[in-house]
Design a protein around this nucleic acid. Structure first.
Lengths: 229, 229
DNA sequence: GAACTATTACGACAGTTGTCGCGTTAAGAT
DNA sequence: ATCTTAACGCGACAACTGTCGTAATAGTTC
């Protein structure tokens, strides 16, 4: 569930064609010439985004700074990525290959706790890519869509947690709405850290998970009468 | 819990000393001369903020636009409010007098459902002051503090809901952590509408409230072992 | 390797953002 | 009524933001 934090930077190898992957940069205009130079420019820019984010946080992430640091001309950055949200969205796409796997601890409580812990870490770590994306999502449609897509994917992957729990008999036999359960378990983390800006509580992940499981056991998320999606 | 939406504008009466209230504009520098002109300027600027927010949403809320519309010079707006977050923070302070009361429907489920409905409405209404404040909170320390304070106040006021429910016997006799319960009930609303940008679900407020109550009944928020704050 | 053209670099440009010094106005005090 | 000075208006200013037309570069194709 945690957003993809920086994978190993490719700054060291500026000449990294990496032609294997170069999907649509911002999803709309497919590169008709994805080879050498284009891929190199993209790698330089995304490296600059990561570096800028690490140094100045999401507040200091500007098109100007990224262009200067990457050595790519401003106009090029504007044309290909449009705004900061586009940069972040492409950063997701670039890191999307590294496949994230939901936790598997053997129990639903353990899985949800681990999930919440990951989320909390992703929100607390400096710089937080998740927070940067949230901030950008209010100004950039690209960032908003990328964020929605990211979480939708992660939640979809986590449906397996609920299925396994049901098979193990941890949940009522009748179908439990996985999406609602997952939101109930994870939402308090964001609420506390982002909205209320509370200090991270080492016990919160476990407690939020526990509460969601108790609600699920009581049938709160049963397909018919529970908190539907 | 819903943030204070625009109260009746005072644009019609530009000369409204309203000297009764003129607290610290942005909390730091107390006006040593809060009378006539200063109050008038503030009223004009805050009216402009409301109008701009209504017309262009939080995206179109800029210092320049507010200054132009209000007829107050840009430099003055910058000096007194510093940034957009400061404007929104002062808007809260100005509307803070209108006392909000938590719902009282006779049952915990009903109260939490009504609370969630209010929140959902505040997030969906166009323009949403709550969303504007969230967006600004990522760039402005003033907005971030105002947001934190606003929600802290509202949650504190809602503690009474849990107390009443305990008295009615709707919750276990042992002490229930009101803060955790309230967050569990309300967090999914924000999560769905802001983070996941899902369409508003008319049944979500009721379902989220129901799940939180079930968890509470199961002792999830009991002082010792539950999801503490 | 030669031709084609997608992509980038360049530099100029208007519009926007935020700050500053200074003169003017008017609130609050005597 | 007069004085003091906080707050505001004014205009200039540099820095930043985003866009555009044109030339240069370098994938891609043949």
């Amino acid at each position: 569930m945690a957003p993809p934090e920086d994978e190993t930077s490719t700054t060291d190898t500026p000449v990294t064609p990496d032609a294997s992957d170069t999907p649509n940069p911002h999803g709309t205009k497919p590169d008709r010439r994805p080879g050498g130079r284009t891929a190199r420019t993209r790698a330089q820019v995304l490296d600059a985004v990561r570096a800028e984010l690490a140094e100045n946080g999401h507040a200091g992430l500007t098109m100007e700074a990224v262009a200067t640091r990457s050595g790519v001309h401003r106009a090029t950055v504007y044309r290909r990525w449009r705004d900061v949200g586009g940069l972040l969205a492409d950063l997701i796409a670039a890191a999307g290959e590294i496949d994230w796997q939901p936790p598997d601890t053997g129990s639903l409580r353990g899985d949800l706790t681990a999930l919440n812990q990951e989320i909390q870490d992703s929100l607390v770590v400096q710089p937080s890519f998740a927070v940067a994306l949230m901030a950008a999502s209010f100004h950039s449609e690209q960032a908003a869509q990328a964020q929605t897509q990211l979480w939708a994917d992660r939640y979809a992957q986590c449906v397996i947690l609920v299925e396994r729990a049901t098979e193990r008999g941890e949940l009522p036999a009748r179908h439990t709405d996985a999406h609602s359960l997952l939101i109930a378990a994870t939402a308090p983390i964001y609420h506390q850290l982002v909205l209320l800006r509370a200090a991270p509580d080492p016990q919160l992940p476990q407690r939020a998970a526990e509460a969601a499981v108790l609600a699920a056991e009581a049938g709160a998320f049963s397909a018919d009468t529970g908190e539907g999606r």
